[in-house]
Amino acid sequence: MSDKPKIGLYWCASCGGCEESVVDLAEDILDVVEAVDIIFWPVAMDFKRADVEAMDDRSITATLINGAVRTSEQEEMVRLLRRKSAVIIAYGSCAHLGGIPGMANQFDREQILRYVYEDAPTVVNDEKTRPATAHRFNGSEATLPVFHATVRALDQVIDVDYYIPGCAPTPALLKAAVEALLTGTLPPKGTVLAPDIALCDECPRKESKPEDLRIERFHRPHAVMADPDTCLLAQGIVCMGPATRGGCEALCVKGNMPCTGCFGPTSRVRDQGAKILSSLAASVAADEEADIISILSTIPDPIGTFYRYGLPGSLLRKLLSQSSWTGGTSHHA
């Protein structure tokens, strides 16, 4: 084997878009392949878990893991990769903050399984069969991973060194990260490898944002024809840009769609959803309680809107239904 840096790529609960974004490096990928040895990439190359287990600890220079962690298999794999890698990079919104799969944290596991295997209108399952984690057949045992009760961001399972944000990350960010890795110019551990300033800084519509924004009602993006040159918030469309890290080149806004927050908050914010909620609510153009409620009702799904990519990484993390908690341990006064 060459002594080129070894890079691993792995996916957990994700859509594959992050893998796609690696391929989106286009010709640049050749430079990357030239500079490194990719020693593990299940999507593209035929390596097995046993190959990884056989590697020396910390022998992988860096592993990019995308996707949230929902199953025991994902968890085992990320722990294994953590042991084998010198640097772990959480790649993409799901690994960074929980991502779209993280929205499942609005529901209990039982609710999800019941819907998916019994109640969904497209399901025919009179026996109410659910997948089992182990099944004996013809003398051998087949196993399935355990479906955890909670979706987790990567750093809620293992120690993470860096984060590359985005759904999916842009090739430019990936390229910059790889370059930093190869040249040994990575910032301090824990850094999100994207600008620490909100998207508005680079938004092409910045100038059109009024200095006296007062929102009289919110519009959902599909329900209006957005003016392509005016700040989307000024048009009453919830844009997460002010609360979201920049570095994406404002791709969604350039496509006349609002920012939905995939790059996560800046380092100064603990809970991205709470912050945009605070800002938008304060800008509501009403003082009377009934009017306020009426304007706010034009945001039909606050959690899905403000926590689209970050629910597992948020302060509350997960549904806190009274029924699922029987409570009470020793620490109470």
Partner: peptide, 15 residues
């Protein structure tokens, strides 16, 4: 305001 951090989103101004 932390000048380097401000994105100039103007959300604060009318408040």
């Amino acid at each position: 305001i932390m000048e380097d951090d401000c994105s100039g989103c103007k959300s604060c101004i009318p408040l």
